[in-house]
């Protein structure tokens, strides 16, 4: 799912300039505002939601599957829990797992990419063939196989996604590292006899990390969708965790009569992923000097 965002490599100018350009585009600005709200509600979920006990500690089955009302803005689920509370709390679950998956991928992918790019030769060859192997797996299938080995849980799903995601970062940073390696300060460090590893981690990696960070932030939308897909299949979050994909999976048996159960978590996924993608797209455009010329 990621190659859509991967193909064009961003080139970061100054952060301030980017923010300015981002804000200039109304659509992106709107997306940014929604996203900030989402992050805030995820962080302060405990304070915001009207029925905090409905996340895990309560059930009111006598009140099951009620349509949206003043008390329950998004209705109630099959155990009488407030869907609004669960959807809002779900933002926290989704963002946390997406950040986890992307972070873990960076942790694997970045050092490997830096090493491959700096060393070159057979080291580069081995690492790049390894990334090719992982890239050629169908991502969802690889994740499913990993979850089958590790057991279903949200953390294992995150781990499984990272395993299919890291090669993208390795490729990206390798390209950066190859060009950075030729720069004067690296060569200077080499001539004064600094160890190779120190050069990689002290000099090369910090100088090619920024485009990867930008890329990673653009990938979050895609990762959220993948997490939701795995949970929808029962391979991710476990009940009663209010994960959006899992909620849709539970809600679909009540669809379409109790439409609210299935619709609201779906809308939440859509809006979140859309905002991330809109912003990612805008960032890429800003960073790409060619498309900016006009």
């Amino acid at each position: 799912m990621s190659n859509f965002l991967q193909t064009l490599r961003p080139r970061l100018k100054s952060f301030g300039e980017s923010m300015y350009l981002l804000a200039r585009n109304k659509l992106s600005l709107l997306a940014l505002i929604v996203l900030v709200l989402l992050v805030l509600s995820a962080v302060f979920a405990n304070v915001i939601i009207p029925y905090p006990q409905d996340i895990a500690d309560a059930s009111h089955i006598e009140n099951k599957l009620q349509p949206p009302s003043a008390e329950h803005w998004m209705g109630t689920d099959e155990l009488g829990r407030d869907i609004f509370s669960r959807v809002v709390y779900g933002a926290r679950v989704s963002l946390r797992s997406a950040l986890g998956a992307v972070g873990l991928s960076l942790l694997i992918g970045v050092p490997l990419g830096a090493i491959a790019g700096s060393f070159g030769g057979w080291v580069d060859n081995v690492i790049m063939r390894l990334t090719d192997v992982f890239l050629s797996f169908p991502p969802l299938l690889l994740a499913i196989a990993m979850v089958a080995v590790l057991g279903s849980s949200l953390n294992n799903a995150v781990l499984a996604i990272s395993l299919s995601w890291w090669p993208w970062y390795t490729r990206l940073i390798r390209g950066q590292a190859i060009s950075v390696k030729e720069r004067k300060f690296v060569q200077a460090a080499e001539t004064i006899g600094t160890s190779k590893l120190k050069i990689i981690f002290r000099h090369i990696m910090p100088n090619c990390i920024s485009p990867v960070i930008v890329q990673a932030s653009m990938d979050i939308g895609g990762v959220i969708l993948t997490v939701a897909s795995l949970s929808f299949l029962g391979l991710g979050a476990q009940l009663p965790t209010p994960e959006w994909g899992l909620m849709i999976s539970m809600g679909r048996t009540y669809f379409p009569d109790k439409w609210w159960y299935c619709i609201f978590p779906g809308v939440a996924i859509f809006i979140t992923v859309l905002c991330f993608n809109l912003i990612g797209d805008a960032i890429r455009e800003i960073l790409d000097p060619k498309t900016r010329k006009k």
Partner: peptide, 28 residues
């Protein structure tokens, strides 16, 4: 995995057990 009746019944059970101070973890 995928059995909604089991999932609902077990979540109700989970709430009851919590009253006894027992944490029930559901694994599909």
């Amino acid at each position: 995995t995928g059995d909604d009746t089991y999932a609902s019944a077990l979540q109700l059970y989970q709430v009851n057990l919590r009253q006894l101070g027992i944490d029930l973890e559901l694994k599909s």
